[in-house]
């Protein structure tokens, strides 16, 4: 009996602390953060969802999978050799967006110069100064629908 109780004394801190640390670090901490985030920052906490016509159509941070000629396309539908690291890169470079302008202009009748201006007005930079200028494809297409509702019947 005495050896059993001395063994328990020896191993009790290890057993108790491993369970306690799991409850605190693995449950209390993430659930507390979830509670605060959901209360204070629900939009971001739920994945920064984009709305169109009163319904969620995706997240600004996830490629929306555009394929119709009337829209700007992301980089993830083509072949794996040009794919991004995440496979859901929501952005394309400005150069890539501009190369798609003639196709969109053809499909919608919107003047190419207006499309170029729209791309330029939605330009992002990595930290404002570095990298290659880029655009968010979903943001750009939603702006396109808002600016030219008659060219996109049934979307807005």
């Amino acid at each position: 009996m005495s050896t059993r109780s001395s063994r328990w004394r020896k191993y009790r801190p290890v057993i108790a602390l491993s369970i306690l640390s799991m409850l605190v670090c693995g449950l209390a901490y993430p659930l507390l953060i979830t509670g605060v985030a959901q209360a204070a920052l629900p939009y971001q906490a739920d994945g920064s969802q984009a709305q169109l016509g009163g319904r969620a159509v995706g997240s600004y941070y996830i490629d929306n999978g555009f394929t119709l000629p009337a829209f700007f396309h992301g980089r993830n539908e083509t072949n794996p050799l040009t794919a991004s690291a995440s496979g859901v890169d929501p952005d394309i470079t400005v150069a890539e967006a501009l190369s798609q302008v003639p196709r969109i202009s053809n499909a919608t009748g919107i003047a190419g110069s207006s499309l170029v201006a729209l791309v330029k007005s939605h330009e992002h930079w990595t930290l404002w100064v570095a990298g290659t200028p880029y655009v968010n494809v979903l943001e750009l297409n939603l702006a396109l629908i808002a600016a030219y509702p008659s060219s996109y019947p049934g979307y807005a």
Partner: peptide
Amino acid sequence: ALGVPQTVGGYVTVKTVE
């Protein structure tokens, strides 16, 4: 605040723009 999700509400299914 900078855009990283935090929820235990389950994956969300949406219909994309198209």
